[in-house]
Design a protein around this nucleic acid. Structure first.
Lengths: 121, 121
DNA sequence: CTAAAACTTGACGTTGACGTCAAAGGCAAG
DNA sequence: CTTGCCTTTGACGTCAACGTCAAGTTTTAG
């Protein structure tokens, strides 16, 4: 498929897809006239990239991890980096849970004060 | 306390603290000579700001939510925005859990292949 | 008193993941 | 053949949360 279709099917802009190629996150074949051609599996690949971006990884980190995330094979050093990122994400989850709880407390308090309007007994 | 001490105690740069003031996230009294002076409670406030930044909120969103996060009092519209942010954070948590699980699968697979080197039976 | 450390405002620099525009070539439909 | 959309490369723009530097003032230590 060409770049426009991949963009449509992933919800990612063509600019972003070309950027991914620049960063060596996503390869493409070229048609004789020079247009990019992607296989079906590129759809999943793009979604994976988006997922890792959303997890706060930078392009360089994704480049490092992508091979083993895709193939399942990893050198010991790669496993280390993988573990580091896993730990980072885990900490991030816990922080977010704390923040969510904090917002919940406010929401609950507001709900209560709505039931018992204005002056507490 | 002055800005340097607040920076030391929160681990945030003085530049960031001045930036927070620009964004109306953090107020300060001024000494007669014009230097910023903060009360003790500013330490908690800065930590709260950092927590909300870490949760992916932008300055503008934090500005909106800070009053009610601090006072516990919120208008219905504010409660809406609060709920929106809560939902966003919740979704983010779930995405991160998915990503963490994905990395875990790789780590587990690698650990197994380390026990059973090279050729599977 | 004086030197060092801390503070002030102002302004430009940085970084990452793209957005946007321009100029040109490619491709299917009528 | 041509019209209109798709694609190409290249290059500059953007945005947020600061970093960094400059030049001057204030506070503190000795």
């Amino acid at each position: 498929m060409r770049i426009g279709e991949l963009a449509d099917r992933t919800g990612v802009s063509t600019r972003a897809l070309r950027y991914y190629e620049e960063q060596h996150l996503l390869a493409s074949e070229r048609s004789p006239s020079g247009q990019r051609t992607y296989p079906e599996v590129a759809v999943d690949r793009v979604r994976l990239i988006q997922q890792l971006y959303a997890a706060g990884l930078a392009s360089r980190s994704i480049v490092e991890l992508l091979p083993c995330v895709v193939t399942g094979v990893a050198s010991p050093e790669l496993l280390d980096r993988l573990a580091v990122q896993r730990a980072r994400i885990d900490a991030q989850i816990n922080d977010l849970i704390d923040t969510r709880d904090r917002l919940d407390q406010i929401l609950v308090a507001a709900a209560e004060s709505a039931h018992r309007p204005c002056v507490p007994m």
